[in-house]
Amino acid sequence: MMDHARDLASVQEATERLLTAAGELDNAAVTDQSRLPGWTRGHVLAHLARNADALVNVLEGRPMYASAEARDADIERDARRPLDAHLADVRESAARFQAAGLVPADWSRTVELRNGITDTVSRLPFRRWAEVELHHVDLGIGYELEDVPQEFAEREIDFLTQRFAGHADVPATRLTDGTRAWSTGREQDEGAVTVTGTAADLLGWLAGRRDGAALTVAGGPLPALPPL
């Protein structure tokens, strides 16, 4: 069972790490390319702020975004701001998310996110934690997948392997970091591909942040994963 209160605390800690690190940048660095194609660091920071507000919308019973076009336009509008404006926006939107998350609610109810995806509301704090951790890495400012908390890495691998489980385009695949094992793709059988690597490399591949070159693959080629 999800412990949303504990996850909210983890989100707050991750946000503080990101804000401290981003606070060492300058206005010129905000305009530099991030690790996400087509996005500057300003785009990443703007997205983080708007995502927090979007999750507040979900918590309070409203659509996550007015539309896909409005989401993209808001990020593009805010991306060009100076660093101080970005930091204030990320901090203030994060505080709004924390406040909304502390309101007594039915945490078992199902809510709708982007693109028709549904989930229980109790998973929203973890989803926000993932946004903060992965986009901190995407900023390209010294925080790597090896630096994320172990609990987060393991849980995000769990989440992503579940997301691809049963996917017709993903062959039966077993993943292991030498200690833990996960299964994903089509129904498992004796012909499953086995992918071995560190938790950071497995997470990077599943989350589309690494190409999988550091992974060891047996039983077939490294599966191509559909976009998240």
Score class of each variant (00 low, 15 high):
D3F: 11
H4S: 15
R6C: 08
L8R: 10
L8G: 07
L18N: 05
L18W: 07
T20D: 11
A22E: 01
E24F: 04
A28E: 15
A28S: 14
A29L: 13
D32F: 09
D32S: 11
Q33C: 10
Q33L: 10
S34P: 04
S34K: 00
L36C: 09
P37S: 13
G38M: 01
L45H: 09
A46R: 01
H47Q: 07
H47F: 04
L48M: 12
N51A: 15
D53S: 14
L59F: 12
L59A: 04
G61A: 12
R62H: 15
P63E: 09
P63F: 11
M64Y: 06
A66F: 07
A66I: 11
S67H: 05
A68T: 09
R71N: 09
R71E: 10
D72K: 08
D72Y: 02
A73I: 02
R80E: 12
P82G: 08
P82R: 03
D84H: 08
A85S: 14
H86R: 07
H86D: 05
A88I: 00
D89M: 14
V90H: 10
R91S: 13
A94G: 13
F97S: 00
F97K: 03
A100W: 11
A100H: 11
L102P: 00
A105Y: 04
A105S: 15
D106H: 14
W107S: 10
R109P: 11
E112A: 15
L113G: 05
R114F: 10
G116M: 12
T118N: 10
R123V: 15
R123D: 13
R123P: 06
L124W: 10
L124E: 11
L124C: 09
F126T: 05
R127F: 12
E131M: 00
E131G: 00
G142N: 12
E151K: 07
E151A: 15
A153Y: 01
A153V: 03
E154C: 04
E156I: 01
E156K: 06
I157Q: 00
T161Y: 03
Q162N: 10
A165M: 02
G166S: 03
A168V: 11
A168H: 11
A168F: 05
D169P: 00
V170C: 02
P171I: 05
A172T: 01
R174V: 15
R174A: 12
T176R: 03
G185K: 01
D189E: 09
G191E: 12
A192L: 04
T198K: 08
T198D: 05
D201T: 03
L203D: 05
L203I: 01
L203E: 06
G204R: 06
W205M: 07
W205S: 01
L206F: 06
L206A: 01
A207P: 01
R210K: 14
D211I: 08
G212W: 01
G212Y: 03
A213Y: 03
P221D: 15
P223C: 12
L225Q: 00
P226M: 06
P227V: 14
